[in-house]
């Protein structure tokens, strides 16, 4: 591809669109970490399940893809609750390595179950706006990407209101600060954990639906976005929502630019290099908490 002004602008727009999907995933991962002090490495697999469910609902029920995302959100939230109750709750507070082991087990379970159910071939969700694009002088942007950005903004605003304005959000914030004190204040911490996991999973499902509309995906799609989301929350600071948004946009743009200038293979390698450099300089992330 020639490197000209329009291609750079297009790359930036793509970066913002893909960055938005990462932001949703990172926010979900972040809220779960903030409240439960747990990193679910299988978070990207929830994105994958969300994408597949949206595909199935669109394909078999003929529903509008964007409406299907809402349905798949609910289903994935239930899956998240099941995952929290059956696995993570039982190992919470123990050896940190156990979280990694359980996550890996979940990755294998989700990926292979998805492969058995939906097959090994890649799929793409058919959006009502497929093929349409906004034609500007010398560049054109598909409407799906613009809609994706809007969906992410709306979801994030709803999420922010939930955290800042509601009692549940207050309880979540209290639990994230100190769960034992929250318990003394009459908060049912276990319910909050369950809700947090459900919300985080639902955000991953939205990310999955948008991803599936923009790109084609298969059962292995979750792995790389998880790592990217992790890189974003390390860049932006664990537990910080604003950090996740800035980190997500930054990451999406850097990745797209690296791909444009150095070629596709360098996309994820550059991301990791960035992550490693940050962690070497600051082992807890740029804005990381001191205790963890």
């Amino acid at each position: 591809m020639d490197i000209t002004a329009p291609t750079i602008i297009l790359t930036l727009v793509w970066g913002v669109a893909i960055g938005c999907v990462y932001i949703l995933l990172a926010t979900g991962l972040n809220i779960i970490f903030g409240v439960m002090k747990l990193v679910n490495f299988a978070h990207g697999q929830l994105l994958m399940i969300g994408a597949y469910l949206t595909w199935t609902i669109t394909y078999s029920a003929g529903l509008n893809a964007y409406a299907a995302i809402i349905l798949s959100m609910l289903v994935v939230a239930c899956i998240g609750v099941a995952v929290e109750r059956l696995t993570f709750r039982r190992i919470l507070g123990g050896d940190k390595l156990n979280e990694i082991f359980v996550s890996l087990g979940l990755i294998y379970i989700f990926e292979n179950a998805a492969m058995l159910i939906w097959g090994a071939n890649s799929k793409q969700i058919v959006s009502p706006l497929a093929g349409l694009s906004l034609a500007l002088p010398s560049i054109s942007i598909t409407y799906d990407r613009i809609v994706a950005v809007f969906v992410v903004i709306v979801t994030l605003i709803a999420f922010g209101l939930l955290i800042q304005k509601t009692k549940i959000g207050l309880a979540m914030r209290a639990t994230s600060q100190r769960n034992s004190t929250a318990m003394l204040m009459g908060i049912n911490v276990e319910t909050i954990y369950m809700l947090t996991f459900a919300i985080g999973s639902a955000l991953a499902a939205v990310a999955g639906g948008l991803y599936g509309i923009i790109f084609s995906f298969d059962y292995q799609v979750g792995a790389i976005p998880t790592i990217i989301a992790f890189a974003i929350i390390i860049l932006g600071g664990l537990g910080s929502i604003k950090g996740a948004i800035i980190g997500g946009l930054l990451y999406g743009i850097v990745e797209q630019l690296a791909t444009l200038f150095f070629g596709g293979v360098w996309g994820s390698a550059v991301a990791f290099a960035m992550l490693i450099v940050v962690l070497i300089i600051r082992p807890n992330g740029i804005f990381g908490e001191k205790g963890e």
């Binding site: 490495f41 940190k96 979280e99 790592i227 890189a231 390390i234």
Partner: peptide, 18 residues
């Protein structure tokens, strides 16, 4: 050596990709 649990997991994973 300075990294803990999941940071280490991510960084080592990153090295295998690199």
């Amino acid at each position: 050596v300075r990294l803990k649990a999941w940071y280490l997991a991510m960084v080592t994973f990153g090295f295998s990709v690199i």
